[in-house]
Design a protein around this nucleic acid. Sequence first.
DNA 1: ATGTCC
Length: 473
Amino acid sequence: MENKRINGNDLIALGYKENHTLGAALKINSKRHGFTRAEMLAKFKSVLENPTAYTEDIIFSVLAEAILGQDVVDATLIALNEDPVEYTIYGASGIEAGAKEQMKVAMKMPVTVAGALMPDAHQGYGLPIGGVLATDNAVIPYGVGVDIGCRMALSIFDLPASLLDTDAATLKETILKHTRFGAGNGYLKHERVDHAVLDNKLFAENDLLKSLKDKAWTQLGSSGGGNHFVEFGIVEFVEKDEVLNVDKGLYLGLLTHSGSRGLGATVAAHYTKLAKTLCKLPYQAQNLAYLDLNTMEGQEYWLAMNLAGDYASACHEVIHDKIKDALGAELLAKIENHHNFAWKETWNDREVVVHRKGATPAAKGVMGIIPGSMATPGFLVRGKGEMAAIQSASHGAGRLMSRTQAIKTLSAAELKDMLADRGITLLGAGMDEAPMAYKDIHTVMASQEELVDVVAKFSPKIVRMADDGSRED
DNA sequence: ATGTCC
């Protein structure tokens, strides 16, 4: 406690305003410069009270200048509205305060038309994960998320789910052979496959994308890390679905979760930085910097975002095709959806840009997939087109604890027992992906009954994720 | 999420 790191709240308590001076002070504090916490707090108080005395100070001049100029700078910033637009929260009691605070800031943005918070929401950069935001002709790179086009795909095969018992070894080998995980990982030249997405003319027209094309090729059909997975499981239809034309029964399914790999990450980083230089917002809203779609930069991002989305889709397609061919299976149905993306949609008779950052599109009749965790079911759903939710639903159960907290507190033995108990084979994965680190999917689903109907249940049985070394097999 | 800071 004595030497605890000084944070924004400590500075606000000293009288600092929540603007760029806070950032300048925290940046200085990050080095501490040999001062104790108490000495540093006294310094910060003194600089705030008499900034002119510090304009030549080797450490504090940057802060002093920021304080002296703050009124001028604040006047040049794009102002937030005083009153946030009202928005609906689903499953509010299970959502951390930080996510709601972030949403409130987003609702004060001058371009904001409407918003909604999904029941799996938690804090992110700018817009919370599980946040849906409709804007007027503007796109927020951090409203889409850093993994542009992160998405789900489910293949339902014409094979009985009993193969998971009778042919488990073959299925396990098939996943291991045809998937690749880990940050930065991809395929060697002779292992690569081709896909029409690589012929997109943007790879020749946009300099940034040109520089990323080769990496995109090497990573085509790979899965990456974090919460991404490829898994076999049981697809359960309790009754026939007339639209999909799938009979009641238990089928072998392949479910994948991944995004646009290095390509999307680089696009996101580039345009977030660009948006921040073009769109100067108050401190609390800096990560919500937006690009006007009537500008060249806005158009460029829109096209690059769509390419990253197509690329993410292609990655899933490659994985599903390889595995379907290896099994010699036929497809009964295939369902897929982005859950980190922005779309032009009509909301209450108005054209808006809908950002879904960790949210499943759920327009009336639109199908989507909401995964649980490695050891809990996911759901094939059909949207109800609820306008209060901007036609969206959650993109999963949502994290209950941070990755670091999960690795520090959860028991690997407990996870092992749970997997054995449920008959689940886990390949790779770290403790941060243990089911105990996630909210209860059933509670989350109950919170969004107005948003989606459940069509089928998916129970994971053979799960592959990136290995981060925090768990022994 | 991301070769986890060009």
